[in-house]
Each structure stands twice: as structure tokens, then as C-alpha cells.
Amino acid sequence: MNAPSASNQDIFEVRKIRRLVELMKEHDLSEIDLQEGDVRIQLRRACAVAPVMVAAPPVAAMPAAAPAAPAPAAAPAAAPAAGKANSGLVIKSPMVGTFYAAADPESPAYVKIGDHVGPETTVCIVEAMKVFNQIPAEVSGKIVAVLVENGAPVEFGQPLFNDAAGD
């Protein structure tokens, strides 16, 4: 990385790196390699899968993104009639399916007791017909209880986690 020339840039770089690391963890990436102008950032995370370099430059790939922060994911809209699925102290299932605590059996659970979540934090998977839905918390707070077992069927509105607002 190029040495920043001003203290403002310093903070900017640290925040950027922190956010990149969060994203890597969130999406279980072992490596990212980004270039913006003449600044290049390569981050490699120690993990079981050997990191693989993207050898060829992508053809007709996405335009060089200007902002350092990724585009914020829109909060998913709950069915209007039902209103917001999650409120206050309970995170509920927004759909019928099978609850999985982790992305796959080899991965750690998305959240455990004591973790802080934000509205866009993926807390679990609910699978239906082989479509694996990442379920966002939709609330902020700290997970204080996990209410369903891995692999259990869940109904629409069924409580999945208890969370305590603030901390």
C-alpha cells in the first residue's frame, strides 16, 4: 500500500481496510486484490481453502468502483400486510423452510450468543426447495439466545433468536 500523505487519508485507509476485512469474513473470502488508480490493496486471510489468484483480467467486468465502501444492501421489504418481521427482542423467520445456523456444515455459525448484529447482518440460512436464503437480522443488538436447532423446520414468523437492544 502507498503511504498516506495526510492524517485524514490515514483514518480513511484504516476504515477501508477494516471494512474490507469485515466483508472478507462475511463472505468467507480468502483473498481480495483491489486496484484504484495507482493504489493496490491485497489482503489474504488464513483459512483452510488455498487462496486462488484471479489470473486473467475480467472481460467487460464491472466498472471500476469509485467509493471505497460497498453499495449498502437495501433492507429487504417484509410482506406489507404482515409488517416488519422483526422488532425489538426477537428475530423471526420471514419464511417457511429449514433453518441452518451456518452457510454449510464446514463453516462456523453466522452468529453466536454474545455477537452484536446490525440490520444487515446475516444471522442464519433458511432453505426452501434448495434455495438458500441468507436471513438478515433487521434489528441491531446483541444475540442472547438461539431458539431453533440446526436443521429444524421453521414457519413464517417463528422466533429464531432473542436479541437485546443496545448493550
Binding site: L23, E26, H27, D28, L29, S30, I32, V49, P51, V52, M53, V54, A55, A56, P58, V59, A60, A61, M62, A65, P67, P70, A71
Partner: peptide
């Protein structure tokens, strides 16, 4: 838009990453 890679860990992971970058 399309990307081609000789080798990737997983195309789903790459697509997810592109999504997180605001594709």
C-alpha cells in the same frame, strides 16, 4: 456483464463478492 476466469475458488463466491462491491 460477464467475467471469465481460468481458475476460481468458486463462481458463487466471486459473484457474491461482486454483489458486495455493488455490482
Amino acid at each position: 456483464q460477464a467475467e471469465h476466469h481460468p481458475t476460481l475458488s468458486s463462481t458463487n463466491d466471486r459473484a457474491t463478492w461482486c454483489a458486495s462491491r455493488g455490482a
